[in-house]
Design a binder for these strands. Structure first.
Length: 481
RNA sequence: GGCGCUAUCGUCUAGCUUGGUCUAGGACAUUGGAUUUUCAUUCCAAAAACCCGGGUUCAAAUCCCGGUAGCGCUACCA
């Protein structure tokens, strides 16, 4: 596969009409993995021909997302390259020339039909069980006629003369795919010379930017023949196509905001790690040869193989993402984890680095996503608020619990400050627990310290918060009973 | 409606190219158990699938045909 990888050029071509979402992210990832594995260049191209819906902030969101995941590209709007500009809105002159060429060769024409006419036509055809397509009414308008209309100020769109033929192309994972172009009708390729449309500009840019492999979502499958037709009209080389299966919701519906977060940044803000995200998304529609699920960026790069891309849509299951994320958190160096978690906690928890570090190392195996820490570990930083009921172990009565806590208060009070450690509690308190009942003694202690039904063990908590704070909390618990 | 793509546990998937080793493997989720004062972690176990119908063949999850279902596209969006 490494033979002519110098000529391999792939592109990720999002439209900045919304934040970078999971589906697009996967497309970007597969493009990136493709060149990391086979060699070649990765290009970011911004498809902002829709002036109304395209927004600079979305372009920024897309670039930020790619950076967060470490999907670096070789050419793009923010880093330039030899085939720029990389924003379609800045390439109008290029498209205009191609459009003119089409007119010169009699392969395009102006159409003056109104939207209402076209809609009526479409409905009529559909009700007759036919493929809805343009009738070709304006196809035979003479050059003079159309130019006169344009001069007069009539609004005309530019249509491409679709040849009556079978369009066939090869998809690297699906094989040969055929479409009957006769069913399309003459497609609109531009609103006017300055406002070209998607299927046209894509064909031009992929050629101009020397794209060798087009890796994109399956939703583009039926756009491909239209683009191939345009490539053929200009005698361009037809690139290789790889149409990726779609990412679906658990209900097997198209991924959309109605069902769950679709923006990559939502996951970032929820405390998912970029490496977990990458790993998870890679597994949506692709699988390595062995039965391995946890793969680092480097392993993904090495293992990636387009032959192992799935053909059918993959449902996005948040459970698996959570599990993967927790695996990465557990493996992560604690100091690195501290730095990451600092972005997800209240300012006042940040005052004591030592306390934060100890709290994090105790909670590490309980954290599924970075935001969890805030919910789980508040009692390390502030006095817990809780209802006395959680102090009760099973059916043991209040008085007994109260008494047990009093015993603990006394025994813990005897331990010197410099001996206030987990090892010493094991030595001094544990035997006590054995005689009074482990659950009856340690559950209320742990609950008094954490104010929670679930938390790390009492010895660990006491070691972290210290003697004075521990005694204070036990005392408060006694008063609650 | 038309065109296209797809079809293995609830989910992600292995296996399908080169039919037999598949009483269909792994992972997440679920359930049960062990460890643990609790939760979590870890470990063990269970339950769970070849869309349907034909055909080819000694033999089909694997090959062929038909059906069905799901999804995508069907814009002067991308």
């Amino acid at each position: 596969m490494a033979m002519d990888n110098k000529n391999i050029r792939v592109r990720f071509a999002p439209s900045p009409t919304g934040a970078l979402h999971i589906g697009n992210t996967r497309t970007a990832l597969f493009n990136w993995l493709f060149i990391k594995n086979y060699g070649g260049k990765f290009i970011l191209r911004i498809e902002d021909t829709d002036k109304e819906r395209s927004k600079p902030e979305f372009e920024k969101d897309i670039i930020d997302g790619l950076k967060w995941l470490g999907l670096d590209y070789d050419e793009g709007p923010d880093i330039s390259g030899n085939y720029g500009p990389y924003r379609q809105s800045e390439r109008t002159d290029i498209y205009k020339n191609y459009l003119k060429k089409l007119f010169d060769e009699n392969k395009a024409y102006y159409c003056f039909c109104t939207k209402e006419e076209l809609e009526a036509e479409r409905q009529a055809m559909m009700s007759r069980g036919l493929a809805p397509k343009y009738s070709g009414k304006c196809r035979n308008l003479s050059k003079e006629e159309s130019e006169n209309k344009i001069q007069k100020g009539d609004k005309g769109v530019i249509r491409f003369k679709v040849l009556n033929k079978e369009v066939e192309f090869n998809d690297l994972i699906r094989g040969k795919i055929k479409f009957d172009a006769n069913l399309f009708g003459d497609i609109v390729i531009a609103k006017n010379l300055k406002e070209p449309l998607y299927n046209f500009v894509v064909a031009i840019d992929d050629h101009e930017m020397k794209i060798s492999h087009i890796i994109r979502g399956e939703d583009h499958l039926s756009n491909t023949p239209k683009q191939v037709l345009i490539q053929e009209a200009f005698d361009f080389n037809v690139p290789k196509y790889i149409h990726l299966p779609l990412i679906l919701t658990t209900e097997r519906k198209k991924l959309s905001k109605r069902y769950l977060d679709v923006s990559l940044k939502d996951y970032k803000n929820d405390g998912y790690l970029p490496e977990a995200m990458l790993n998870f998304i890679a597994l949506l529609g692709w699988h390595p040869k062995e039965d391995r699920e946890i793969l680092s960026r480097e392993e993904l790069m090495k293992e990636f193989d387009i032959k192992r891309i799935q053909k059918s849509g993959a449902a996005f299951d948040i459970n698996k993402l959570d599990w993967l994320n927790s695996q990465y958190i557990k493996k992560m160096d604690t100091n690195e984890l501290i730095e990451k978690i600092k972005n997800f906690i209240p300012d006042n928890w940040n005052k004591n680095d030592n306390l934060l570090a100890e709290a994090i190392s105790l909670e590490k195996e309980r954290i599924k996503k970075l935001t969890d820490f805030k919910e789980l570990a508040d009692f390390f930083f502030e006095l817990p608020e809780y209802n006395f009921e959680i102090l009760i172990w099973k059916n043991v009565g209040n008085e007994k619990i109260k008494n047990n806590l009093k015993i603990l208060l006394g025994e813990i009070g005897k331990i010197q400050n410099n001996e206030f450690s987990k090892e010493n509690f094991e030595k001094n308190i544990m035997p006590l627990a054995k005689t009074f009942g482990v659950g009856e003694l340690l559950w209320p202690l742990r609950a008094a310290l954490s104010g929670k039904k679930a938390s790390p063990g009492p010895f660990e908590i006491m070691e972290v918060i210290g003697k004075a704070e521990s005694l204070k909390r036990i005392d408060i618990a006694i008063k609650k009973l």
